[in-house]
Amino acid sequence: MSAPAQAAAPARFAAGATVRVKDDWPERRGPCHIRTPHYIRGRTGTVVRPLGAFPNPEDLAFARPAPTRTLYHVLFAQEPLWHEGKPGDTVMVEVFEHWLEEA
C-alpha cells in the first residue's frame, strides 16, 4: 500500500497475530479524541496486516507534536461483538498499535 510510511518503530504485530484491544475509556478521564470505536475495546481480533505508520490522531486533534504509530487492519468476528449476527460475518477496523496488546 502507498501508506506514507514515515520512519517509525517496526510493526510489533505481524499478519495473523491474535491481539486484544485495550479496554480503556479515555473519554472518562477528560477531553480526548480517539479513533478506536467503543465496540471493539476489550475484544480479541486478528491482525490482517499492518497499514503503515501515521501521526497519532490523538495528538493531532489537539495540535500537539504527534509521534507516528503503526496502524493495523484488525479483523473481529461479528457475532461475539453484538451477540447477534451470522457466524462467519466479520468486522474489520483500523486500530493503532498503542491500543493493541498480545492476546
Binding site: P31, H33, P57, L60, A61, F62, A63
Partner: peptide, 12 residues
C-alpha cells in the same frame, strides 16, 4: 486546522 482537530471539535 487539521481534520483531526475538526473531528475533536465536532465531538465536543
Amino acid at each position: 486546522m487539521t481534520v483531526d482537530e475538526l473531528r475533536r471539535g465536532i465531538e465536543s
